[in-house]
Write a protein that binds this DNA or RNA. Structure first.
Ligand SMILES: [Mn+2]
Ligand SMILES: [Mn+2]
Ligand SMILES: [Zn+2]
Ligand SMILES: [Zn+2]
Lengths: 133, 133
DNA sequence: CACTAAATTTGTAATGATTACAATTTTATA
DNA sequence: TATAAAATTGTAATCATTACAAATTTAGTG
């Protein structure tokens, strides 16, 4: 994965901050918050500002290389995976799982004549690890 | 719908505020925010405090007679409908629609051995009214 | 290499929803 | 009525996010 050309080909000028933030998001698939991203990167880029993290993530989203979602109305979480997928949060250990939606044949008969641009699904419960212990 | 006995049978002492707030939620199916509820009721109950609205809704949720969800990480919205259903938000007119999920046979093969307690679905796009105009 | 304009980054202040908490009021109980 | 418990209220604190202006970096021109 060449981060610089990935940014460039999506009309994002590849500054140091942008490269590092995207790289971080690409390698850390645990849906970090702004605060987590900032705290993990400020060692690398000592002048980094949290505002830059906010601005940069907004830029990524506007240019379609990052997605965002919110669980339970708390902090926004970010994801470099752009394929539509659901999320599962374990109420016991707090772990956030990616869930592929193979049967997105969701029938919403009421929405026959609606244009659906975006499907957002998240599930809550107990994960397999927590169930077996 | 007898609101007083509905509250009582769910272990909620029916104060004036609680009755009015639940009645409001039951009759206004447009998923109001705390602010909307407060502004609409303060005429009726001039001493009403926004904190009471927050406290009361939390009580309703804890006792299972109200559900809550958040769209786009903004203010929480409240719903007296407890049957599991999805929501559709029109990106044009902003209207929020209830959507019944008839085929909640959603197959999440990855979650075979997970316990799913809660399914949260919301969709975004353009509603039929906005499409035809 | 200067010089200048545009783009990016940064720090601080403002906003807005939600929560904490202590004081006041209302309700239940003896 | 007297007292304790429960509910309500108002204010202050918290915390994520945004606004904004200053500072820095980058790009373009001669
Ligand atoms: Mn994900
Ligand atoms: Mn609803
Ligand atoms: Zn777990
Ligand atoms: Zn519409």
């Amino acid at each position: 994965m060449d981060f610089i050309s990935h940014l460039s080909s999506n009309n994002i000028k590849p500054s140091v901050q942008r490269i590092k933030i995207f790289e971080y998001l690409y390698k850390n698939t645990n849906h970090p918050t702004v605060d987590i991203i900032y705290k993990d990167l400020v060692g690398d880029i000592p002048t980094l500002s949290k505002t830059t993290v906010y601005n940069t993530l907004k830029l990524f989203i506007d240019n379609g290389i990052t997605s965002t979602f919110t669980i339970d109305g708390n902090e926004a979480r970010y994801d470099a995976i752009m394929e539509e997928h659901a999320h599962f949060k374990c109420n016991d250990c707090g772990q956030l799982y990616d869930v592929e939606i193979e049967a997105l044949k969701l029938k919403f008969s009421k929405l026959n004549d609606f244009q659906i641009d975006n499907t957002n699904i998240y599930l809550k419960g107990i994960c397999n690890k927590c169930l077996t212990k």
